Amino acid sequence: MDTPLHLSMYGEYQRMAEDVRAVQARVTEIRTEATSEDGTITAIVGGSGELVELRLDSRIYRTPDSNQLATDITAVVHQAARLARQETFDILSGFLPPDARPETTDLRADPLLHELDRQVAGRER
């Protein structure tokens, strides 16, 4: 029992699904890099915040402080993750409300929820 409303909803769903898939593809291609001030630690992080690569220069062995090394690695990985999150946010910004901020937005769900809310609000008018 397809009515014109159902057909138009399906068309909008298809368009939205295509947009989401295109954005997902862009996010999976993200690679951000951060390097420690002394250049001994480099982290590369993907669009989902996952550590893709960690490079350690042999100079890290000059100071045998494993706790400081762990702290420095963690800081560099977090810096790369922040850059990835910002890049992901920039890609998804068209699906977010104008007042959205990278640090408070759930980039996995909020863009889709906002778009659905927008679609529903448009129907109620």
Rank of each mutant, 00 (worst) to 15 (best):
residue 42 T to R: 15
residue 42 T to W: 15
residue 42 T to S: 14
residue 43 A to W: 13
residue 44 I to M: 07
residue 45 V to H: 13
residue 45 V to F: 09
residue 45 V to T: 13
residue 45 V to W: 09
residue 47 G to Q: 08
residue 47 G to D: 08
residue 48 S to G: 14
residue 49 G to V: 04
residue 49 G to P: 06
residue 49 G to H: 08
residue 50 E to D: 15
residue 50 E to V: 05
residue 51 L to F: 07
residue 53 E to W: 03
residue 54 L to I: 07
residue 55 R to I: 09
residue 55 R to G: 04
residue 57 D to K: 04
residue 57 D to N: 15
residue 57 D to H: 12
residue 58 S to P: 10
residue 58 S to V: 11
residue 59 R to I: 04
residue 59 R to A: 13
residue 59 R to H: 07
residue 60 I to E: 09
residue 60 I to C: 10
residue 61 Y to F: 14
residue 62 R to V: 07
residue 63 T to Q: 14
residue 63 T to P: 04
residue 64 P to H: 13
residue 65 D to C: 11
residue 66 S to K: 14
residue 66 S to V: 15
residue 66 S to N: 10
residue 68 Q to V: 15
residue 68 Q to I: 12
residue 69 L to N: 14
residue 69 L to E: 09
residue 70 A to S: 13
residue 71 T to Q: 13
residue 71 T to M: 10
residue 72 D to Y: 07
residue 73 I to T: 06
residue 73 I to R: 10
residue 75 A to Y: 05
residue 76 V to G: 09
residue 76 V to M: 11
residue 77 V to E: 11
residue 78 H to G: 07
residue 79 Q to V: 04
residue 79 Q to L: 12
residue 80 A to M: 11
residue 82 R to V: 02
residue 83 L to Y: 08
residue 83 L to M: 15
residue 83 L to S: 14
residue 85 R to W: 00
residue 85 R to I: 02
residue 86 Q to R: 12
residue 87 E to Y: 03
residue 88 T to C: 14
residue 88 T to N: 14
residue 89 F to G: 03
residue 89 F to N: 03
residue 90 D to S: 11
residue 90 D to M: 02
residue 90 D to G: 05
residue 91 I to H: 03
residue 91 I to P: 06
residue 92 L to M: 13
residue 93 S to V: 06
residue 93 S to Q: 12
residue 95 F to L: 10
residue 96 L to M: 06
residue 97 P to G: 07
residue 97 P to M: 03
residue 97 P to N: 05
residue 98 P to A: 14
residue 99 D to E: 15
residue 100 A to M: 01
residue 100 A to V: 00
residue 100 A to T: 00
residue 100 A to K: 00
residue 102 P to F: 02
residue 102 P to K: 02
residue 104 T to M: 04
residue 106 D to G: 03
residue 107 L to R: 00
residue 107 L to F: 01
residue 107 L to G: 01
residue 108 R to Q: 04
residue 108 R to S: 02
residue 109 A to G: 03
residue 110 D to Y: 00
residue 110 D to T: 00
residue 112 L to I: 13
residue 113 L to Y: 08
residue 113 L to A: 11
residue 114 H to P: 01
residue 114 H to C: 02
residue 115 E to V: 06
residue 115 E to N: 00
residue 116 L to V: 09
residue 116 L to M: 09
residue 117 D to E: 13
